[in-house]
Structures are given as structure tokens and as C-alpha cells.
Deep mutational scan, measured.
Amino acid sequence: TTVVVGNKKYTFDNPEAAEKFAKKVAKKLGATVHKTNGTFKVK
């Protein structure tokens, strides 16, 4: 599962961990999490 934050990509074996990370980053940046085909995008 990939999490994309700006131009950085983070890969997780565990989708739950990926989602948690994405939400944490989004909260910090005041952004939102978008899920597309198993990829979480923070923007």
C-alpha cells in the first residue's frame, strides 16, 4: 500500500498502517486523505 505525500512516496505492507500514517500526516498538514486504487494521497 502506497501513501503519497506531495512528491514523496511511502510504502507499507499493511494497509491499516498506511491509512493511519496518511491520516496522521494529513492532520498535521491540515490536508485530506484521498484513496485511489489502494493508494492513499494526502493533499
Rank of each mutant, 00 (worst) to 15 (best):
F12H: 01
E16G: 10
T36L: 12
N37G: 12
G38A: 05
V33Q: 01
G6M: 09
V33C: 05
K28I: 10
V5E: 01
E19C: 07
K9Q: 10
T36W: 08
F12W: 04
K27L: 12
V3L: 02
T36M: 12
F21K: 00
V3H: 00
E19R: 08
G30L: 04
K35D: 05
V4W: 15
F12N: 00
K41A: 13
A17S: 10
A26V: 02
T36D: 14
V42P: 03
F12E: 00
K9T: 13
T1G: 10
V25A: 07
V42H: 02
T32R: 07
K27G: 06
Y10N: 01
K23F: 15
F40L: 15
Y10R: 03
V5Q: 01
K43P: 06
F40S: 03
V4E: 14
T32S: 08
T32Y: 07
A22D: 00
H34F: 12
K9F: 11
N37Y: 05
K41N: 14
F21D: 00
V3I: 03
K27C: 07
K27F: 10
T11V: 12
V4M: 12
A18R: 01
G6P: 01
N37R: 05
Y10C: 05
T11P: 05
K8C: 14
V33K: 01
F12S: 00
G38N: 09
F12R: 01
A17N: 09
Y10L: 04
K9H: 12
F21C: 04
E19P: 01
K24W: 15
K41M: 15
K23A: 09
K23T: 12
T32D: 05
A26N: 01
A26L: 02
N37S: 05
T32V: 11
A26W: 02
P15N: 08
T39M: 15
N7Q: 10
K23M: 14
K28S: 08
N37E: 10
G30I: 03
K41W: 15
H34R: 06
A31G: 15
K8N: 08
T39G: 15
F40I: 15
N7R: 14
T2L: 14
T32L: 06
D13K: 13
K43Q: 14
A26R: 02
P15W: 09
K35S: 07
F40K: 03
K28R: 12
G6R: 06
T32K: 09
E19D: 05
A17H: 09
F12C: 05
T32A: 07
A17V: 11
K9Y: 11
K9I: 13
A26M: 02
K43C: 15
L29S: 04
F40D: 03
K8W: 12
E19I: 08
K27E: 10
A22H: 01
T36K: 07
P15H: 09
E19G: 06
G38F: 04
P15E: 13
P15Y: 14
K24L: 12
T32W: 05
F40R: 03
K24V: 09
K43G: 14
H34E: 15
K27Y: 09
E16Y: 12
A31K: 03
K35E: 08
G6H: 07
A22R: 02
Y10K: 02
N37A: 06
N14P: 02
N7F: 11
E16R: 13
V5P: 00
K35W: 15
F12I: 02
T2H: 13
V25D: 00
T32Q: 09
V3F: 01
V5M: 04
P15K: 07
K41V: 15
T1A: 13
F12D: 00
N14I: 06
K8H: 10
V5D: 01
E16M: 13
V25H: 03
D13T: 14
K23L: 14
F40T: 04
V25M: 10
V33H: 02
P15F: 12
V33L: 07
N7M: 11
V4H: 09
H34I: 15
T36F: 13
N7D: 07
E16A: 12
L29D: 02
A18G: 06
K28D: 07
V3Y: 01
K35Y: 15
V33P: 02
N14F: 07
G38P: 03
K43M: 15
A31W: 15
H34T: 14
A26C: 03
P15C: 11
K20Q: 11
K8T: 08
E16Q: 12
V5I: 11
G30P: 01
T36Y: 13
D13N: 10
K20G: 07
G6W: 11
K20V: 10
K20H: 09
K35M: 11
K41Y: 15
A26K: 01
K41S: 12
V3W: 01
K27Q: 10
A17Y: 10
G38W: 04
K41G: 06
K43R: 12
N7S: 13
K27I: 09
A17P: 04
V5F: 05
V33E: 01
F21Q: 01
K8A: 09
D13S: 14
K35G: 05
T1E: 04
T11G: 06
A31Y: 08
V42F: 04
N7L: 11
T39D: 14
V25W: 11
H34K: 07
A18I: 00
F12T: 00
V33Y: 07
K24R: 14
T39C: 13
K35F: 15
K8G: 04
K23C: 11
E19T: 04
A26Q: 02
A31L: 14
N37T: 05
K8Y: 11
T11C: 13
K41I: 15
N37H: 06
V42Y: 02
K24H: 11
A31N: 03
A22G: 02
A26I: 02
V5L: 06
K8Q: 09
A18S: 02
Y10F: 12
G6S: 04
N14E: 08
H34P: 01
V5N: 02
E19L: 14
A17K: 12
F21G: 00
F40H: 04
T1L: 06
F21I: 01
V5A: 03
A17E: 11
K27W: 08
V25T: 06
V25P: 00
A18K: 00
V4P: 00
